[in-house]
């Protein structure tokens, strides 16, 4: 009952907390050309754990912004304009906060749960693994 596969179908969160699950989901998203959404999700988690005193943290915030939000990438398209503006302004003012990507991550996660995650659970990549 508590096999990895049972956990994967429980929630997106359980899937992403499992190494094999996250890896398989990533392979699926690569094929669907939306792997950036998953990388962004993990980047948000990684960023939240960073030390705000470390000068590296501002550089990482800028890197996340540049790579996923500033351009018209798949992540940017799924975010609300207000969310993007908030992050842009925080970076501009160099007001770095551990929670500054939380809202964006929540929005991306909701979209993943509704779309990619459901598609994954019926995909041949998943069914073959099962």
């Amino acid at each position: 009952p508590d096999s990895p596969l049972a956990r994967w179908t429980k929630s997106l969160h359980s899937l992403l907390g499992d190494q094999d699950g996250a890896h398989l989901f990533r392979t699926f998203l690569e094929r669907e050309k939306c792997v950036d959404t998953l990388d962004f999700w993990f980047a948000c988690n990684g960023f939240r754990q960073m030390d705000l005193q470390d000068t590296k943290t501002l550089r990482v915030a800028k890197a996340i912004y540049k790579r996923y939000i500033e351009n018209n990438s798949i992540v940017a398209k799924q975010l609300k304009p207000a969310t993007k503006t908030y992050i842009r302004d925080s970076i501009k003012k160099q007001q770095i906060d551990s929670a500054m990507f939380d809202q964006a991550q929540t929005e991306i996660q909701a979209t993943m749960e509704e779309n990619a995650y459901q598609m994954f659970l019926t995909s041949d990549i998943y069914l073959e693994y099962v």
């Binding site: 190494q19 993990f42 980047a43 990684g46 754990q49 590296k56 800028k62 890197a63 996340i64």
Partner: peptide
């Protein structure tokens, strides 16, 4: 100094689930 890409990659990797 690490490049921006390296920093981003490091950040993503740090959040990935580890082997059990």
């Amino acid at each position: 100094i690490d490049s921006e890409d390296d920093l981003l990659q490091e950040c993503i990797s740090s959040a990935m689930p580890k082997k059990k």
